Amino acid sequence: MMKQFEGFGKFLESLRGKMSLREAANKSGLSHAYIRDLELERNRSTNEKIKPSPVTLKKLSDAYKFSYTDLMEKAGYLEKGIPDSQSAPPTLPLADILFIEIGSTEMTYHTRIGNRTIPMQSLLDFSHFLDQLEDQGFKKMDTDLFVNLSHVKKYDAQAGKLYFDPLGVSLSVTIAALRQKKYHDLILRSVAYHSGNDLEYHFEKSTGKDSLLASLQRQN
């Protein structure tokens, strides 16, 4: 991977300009402490050097109204001047993907028949790609984890796990606590719908019962 632009933290600080850290946090969805750490290029709790992920850069790009591609280049994820023919997003249909893990240099697509890893350097249009995920039913379930809810067949709320089969014996992912709280009802509805329990779920919700949990217990 290419080196990060020297002075990248200072560059981020200059993009923020007169905007306060808390205002930047509100606009980006990142914490003000983390934004400051990025500007200093180190975690102030551990004193370890840090680097923003592509997802974080997308948030800063939107908050600061600055080119996402330029931020990716300066952060060392992309080589300046790569031809467009090398930058198209992967052609694997999003509908076939169970979940996507986004690393610092690559993305891994998980499907029912295996995985596919894509180098991050090939994603100049990564910003548009993230927008597509939301349109296709993906939700961000952790810092760098996007899950296609249409494939989730079982939800273990106690363990915070999503399974891609109704018995909960195959591949699973663990979701962050805050994301679980945010999407709890949406996950329940989605699992009910894609497991064929939608009518029962809506009927029993109207009588004050949690039908989906009851149906999952019957499956077990």
Rank of each mutant, 00 (worst) to 15 (best):
I97V: 15
L94I: 01
G196Y: 09
T105E: 15
L98V: 04
Y201A: 08
T105G: 11
L98H: 08
T143W: 03
T143M: 06
G29I: 02
N26R: 14
A88W: 06
F146A: 01
L38W: 01
H32A: 12
P89N: 05
D144C: 03
F203S: 10
E23K: 07
L188I: 09
K140I: 00
T46I: 11
T56L: 07
L71A: 01
S127Q: 11
Q158T: 10
E204P: 02
G9I: 05
E200T: 11
D84N: 10
A63L: 07
G208K: 02
G81P: 00
L145E: 01
H194P: 08
S45W: 10
Q158Y: 06
S211D: 02
L216R: 09
K181R: 14
P119H: 08
R36F: 12
K140H: 00
G17T: 05
E6P: 15
D125N: 11
K3Y: 14
K80Q: 10
N220W: 09
S104E: 13
K18F: 05
L78S: 01
P89Y: 01
L178V: 00
S67D: 13
I187E: 00
K51T: 13
K51Q: 12
Q121A: 13
L15H: 06
E204C: 06
G7E: 15
R218Q: 14
K140D: 00
S170G: 14
A33M: 13
L178H: 01
S172P: 07
S170H: 12
P119N: 05
L133I: 04
H202Q: 15
I113M: 11
K65T: 06
R189Q: 02
Y68K: 04
L71P: 00
S28M: 09
H128Y: 09
S53G: 08
R189M: 00
A176F: 04
T56F: 05
L167D: 15
S87L: 14
K3P: 12
G9H: 04
N43L: 06
M2D: 10
K154Y: 10
L92Y: 13
R112D: 04
H128D: 15
L60D: 07
G29Y: 00
N115E: 15
Y34A: 06
G9Y: 01
L92I: 10
S206A: 15
T174F: 02
S170Q: 13
R36G: 13
